[in-house]
Design a protein around this nucleic acid. Sequence first.
DNA 1: CCGTAAACTGACCGACAGTCAGTAGATTCA
DNA 2: TGAATCTACTGACTGTCGGTCAGTTTACGG
Lengths: 228, 228
Amino acid sequence: MGIIERKEREKEQRREEIISAAEKVFMEKGLPAATMDEIAELAELSKGTLYLYYKSKEDLYVAVTMRGGEILYKLMAEATSPQKPVLERIKGLGDAYFEFFQKHRQYFRMYRYMDNPQVHKQVSEEMLGACKAKDQRIWNLGVNLMQQAIDEGLIQSRVAPVEAIVMLWAISDAMMRQIDGNSDYWKQLNVDLESTLKRSYEFILEGMMTKKGKHKFQPLKTAEEIAS
Amino acid sequence: MGIIERKEREKEQRREEIISAAEKVFMEKGLPAATMDEIAELAELSKGTLYLYYKSKEDLYVAVTMRGGEILYKLMAEATSPQKPVLERIKGLGDAYFEFFQKHRQYFRMYRYMDNPQVHKQVSEEMLGACKAKDQRIWNLGVNLMQQAIDEGLIQSRVAPVEAIVMLWAISDAMMRQIDGNSDYWKQLNVDLESTLKRSYEFILEGMMTKKGKHKFQPLKTAEEIAS
DNA sequence: CCGTAAACTGACCGACAGTCAGTAGATTCA
DNA sequence: TGAATCTACTGACTGTCGGTCAGTTTACGG
């Protein structure tokens, strides 16, 4: 009785096809300007069918952003895989986020546009739950890493791991938004936000380190600086 | 010939009345769910008239947010008025932003929702220009203050004043967004983002100080801590 | 009191999210 | 094989809303 399974598979495939079409339209036009008719046409389906698979336009939007979330997760997971010293990996986490920002700008924008109450209200509970779960996994990568750095005595134990990661995330996120949205403005002021971000990240990270941590990290940094 | 002037005054008054009505509706429903019909009814005008005064729904939205910008400016201007030591005032700038966030949450949200390309496209050039000007004034408060602190030898001269302020702003802004939008999530993790924000702000500020600055600032801080 | 200009109106338009009665095609069963 | 049933899909239709504009009202000047 492989029929039910096949149907299930086909259904899943349809869901993905719809996401692919929606992705194109949302990225090109943004949520408000995109239309379900256009997505339907691109997906070679009728509009009604879209609503059999997704509850609302916003639901579909969130489904698309979750692809971006998966990319971000993979980038970060790779950056934190244990082949380098812990502090390097924390640094790498920030780099991974920045890489996501640079190479998947459209996803970054969608992701950022999403966390808005206006959008949330139109999204199904399941979708919201799946989204939270994906977010959770991403945060956990950072929190675990930070915990490890504390355990190894490289980061001061007085800072909670969650708070430490939140700080690093906050500085990155806010600056990336500025880079993305107001780059003209900052260029005109001769402010290079990208390097400001890099320096801020390291500045905060170093501020949280123990003496032992600084000893371990500093040589690596200066070697890097010499190379450049 | 006071008639022309009176007309001008009345026109300005209409503009303000419309903003007041719009403010109510936008704050209650948010940009997408608010309707021009509802705003018109509340303003006791026809919908057509709204469009004589504002180019689009988004234009009106931005006009409302500028009231919030004015409030923020005043709070910050007050915090930076020269009656306290410079470093205290930089600290006060952060507190002012947080006060704005707490006491004028709706404005904060509108302000944050605005810096989105989807909205920008529908807004008139004049409105956008007026908005930029208001933003500029706010940034300048901080930049000037920081410059003064550097001149007084309290902040390291290697950090550019703009960059220093951007850092402090970034950490505040990103965390406030989290507090506003995901407070349940963080509460459940037992993370007090508000105190994290306060500590982060001071942490970054102190990191930028010279030894002289730290000497001047530290005693004030500890005195405060003893009091609490 | 009339002519003109400015302010205002609201019926109307096009666009779009979302719905649902109906259709086509696959699957099951006699 | 053919009828019955079930499932996926369709697209015309509805209600809503942003924006427009021909026409009306009001205010002013001569």
